[in-house]
Amino acid sequence: MTTEEIKEKSIKYRIKILACIKQANAGHTGGSLSCIDILNVLYNRILDVTPENFDSRNRNHYIQSKGHSVEALYVVLADKGFFPESDLNTYCRHGSHYVGHPTRQVKGIEHNTGALGHGLSFCTGLALGGKMDGRNDKVYTLLGDGELAEGSNWEALLSAAHYKLDNLIAIIDYNKLQITGWTKDVCATDPLEEKFSAFGCSVQHVDGHDVEALTKVLQRVPFAREQPSVIIAHTIKGKGVSFMENNHAWHHHVPTDAEYAVAMQELNQALIEVRRC
């Protein structure tokens, strides 16, 4: 897939995320817009996880530890053909499997998340199991920077480093915000690179909205033999809609009709521009 096609997908995904949240009148808007470029590159260029190979163990794995950004995941999974896009019209509705955090009831999802600080331990076990059986698959997980306050993450890193899991890749959606405000004001999780390095991981930074840079860094893992890789993806919460960017109020705010109209206008304009390039 060309870079232009990937860039176009990012904007289309954003449009679908907002449509999904708007029709459900629920969702985690800011975080989904923050991580969607990462998911776009993972699913369209890196993972090679498809509905056809999903039931096999011999494939790569993606576990979304920051489960609340589930709209981003649903939109990408629908695009990859795991389920019909129309299923998302049931998002958060009576009796739907498409609930507000990932569950295995939805095809394409292999672990239930939503309580923070669980993904890394699970991925450590998954990566270790793959190594035990001599498989070459990689295990990717996405964490929020606010989520890093959960101590269980650091327990997981201890064992991931101890067992030399260079098939484990943790991506931090480093948007520097959480529900209350700036992470540095709530309870700082910085400095991240020093912490991950001290825990035995090899660390790279990337612009989490630059799909080419994301592709390059994800193609280079593991960064060091016998070490887990950590990618600190510098992102903007609410990215792509001017008034949602860097504003923690959009953590799980649903746009009003007027806000939705402006957001769609901005995103459609961006779509025209990316097609013009």
Binding site: R57, H118, S121, F122, G125, L126, L128, A156
Partner: peptide
């Protein structure tokens, strides 16, 4: 958590 991941593997 690790046990759950190993079981999934």
């Amino acid at each position: 958590g690790v046990a759950a991941g190993l079981a999934a593997a």
